[in-house]
Design a protein around this nucleic acid. Structure first.
Length: 181
DNA sequence: GCGAGGATTAACT
DNA sequence: GTTAATCCTCGCT
């Protein structure tokens, strides 16, 4: 995983991320999950994007170097995790909506008590909760990480479907949501 | 300084 | 299918 992977067109990065793996290390134990659902969010040309109206304190990471994380609080309750794309100064990020547990499921269950395996990570807020991603990970640099959180490219890219994005009020005509088959 | 709303989820009917 | 929960950020006064 290098800078060139992320410093690309946001929609392209969203496609490439399908099937990639996240490795989350907690107390010397590993959680590994495979990304199954992403959405692309751009800047000025995307009315659904937080960066649509320009740079602010909240969305500043979206303008930063590709490969950083943009974590924000939604509805006062849930955290959502994005991976920043494009060049420095160009807003763009890929929202990680869902993933599939590969390893360390028992660790995820600690953060997500009382749910079945299939429901552990099948939503943006659930994913961050299951992997213990908090606002502390805002601006976290995946390319210069200390191992707490790593992204690993997939061996064989997964086939995916392309649909309109979910939970937004504007910009639905852009088919920037990608779901692994 | 204050009010509105959101890239959601879970618990209802 | 509908609705409440909940808090940070933005945008305007």
């Amino acid at each position: 995983m290098d800078l060139a992977f992320f410093a690309d067109d946001t929609v392209e990065v969203a496609k490439k991320l399908i099937g990639c793996y996240f490795i989350r290390k907690i107390n010397q134990e590993e959680i590994i999950v495979q990304i199954t659902e992403t959405e692309a969010y751009k800047g000025a040309e995307d009315p659904a994007s937080h960066a649509y109206r320009g740079i602010t304190t909240r969305n500043q990471p979206m303008f930063d170097r590709a490969g950083c994380l943009y974590v924000y609080l939604s509805y006062g309750i849930h955290n959502c995790m994005n991976i920043v794309t494009e060049q420095i100064g160009v807003p763009g990020a890929v929202l990680i909506r869902a993933a599939k547990p590969i390893k360390g499921i028992h660790l995820i269950q600690v953060f997500r008590p009382g749910v079945t395996d299939k429901e552990l990570l099948n939503g943006p807020g659930k994913l961050t909760k299951g992997l213990a991603i908090t606002l502390d990970f805002n601006n976290y640099d995946l390319l210069h990480s200390d191992g707490e959180l790593q992204l690993v490219s997939s061996q064989a890219p997964l086939p995916f479907r392309q649909t309109e994005r979910i939970g937004i009020s504007k910009g639905k005509e852009m088919l920037w949501r990608f779901i692994a088959e």
